[in-house]
């Protein structure tokens, strides 16, 4: 307990922090005050030297933030390295499968379109008249023409010269 108190007072004395009665009591307790003063002087010189040569340099604000950023980047890089680099959904096998699926879809669509446009089948959107005839004995001067009306895409077979009939034939 005494040693600790002495060491504390010794350190405070070296730092020049003892004053008044406490200073006088401590100096009176020193066995060799001259040697102690020399040691105090040496300690102060050493402290000044160390402070001058080894003191931590204070960082400015810019340097502080720059340092923080560098550390964060270094941390993230290390994390990515641990996980085997940057992860993405588009792996090589997935790219291959996606390409194959797209190509299949394209081929299917192309086949569908080609089948729709097959000239042998013609358009499925128009009614086609393959042949037409009227009874020449009944209507010898009859003529037939076929056309498509733009409105409602109606296909019309237009006959002229058919034998006219009395109104009675309009009966249900």
């Amino acid at each position: 307990m005494f040693m600790k108190t002495f060491e504390e007072k010794w350190t405070a004395w070296l730092d020049g922090q003892l004053t008044g009665k406490e200073l006088a009591d401590f100096e009176a307790s020193l066995p060799d005050k001259g040697a102690a003063e020399a040691e105090k002087s040496d300690a102060r010189k050493l402290g000044a030297f160390l402070k001058q040569e080894l003191g931590a340099r204070t960082l400015s604000n810019e340097e502080f933030f720059s340092n923080q950023l560098r550390e964060q980047i270094a941390r993230e890089s290390a994390q990515q390295d641990r996980h085997g680099g940057r992860s993405t959904w588009w792996t090589i096998p997935r790219l291959v499968w996606t390409g194959a699926a797209s190509l299949s879809l394209f081929l299917i669509c192309a086949l569908v379109v080609m089948r729709e446009k097959n000239p042998a089948e013609q358009s499925a959107y128009l009614t086609q008249i393959l042949n037409m005839r009227v009874d020449a004995a009944v209507s010898p001067n009859a003529t037939i023409s076929v056309f498509e009306a733009k409105k409602d895409r109606v296909t019309v077979i237009w006959t002229e010269g058919l034998q006219s009939l009395p109104a009675d034939y309009a009966a249900k």
Binding site: S123, A124, Y125, L126, T127, Q128, I129, L130, N131, M132, R133, V134, D135, V138, S139, E148, D152, R153, V154, T155, V156, I157, T159, L162
Partner: peptide, 16 residues
């Protein structure tokens, strides 16, 4: 009176 052969399309009515 008359006879015809046609391919009737769903989207194209036929009127004679």
């Amino acid at each position: 009176l008359l006879e015809t052969e046609a391919k009737l399309s769903k989207s194209s009515p036929l009127v004679i």
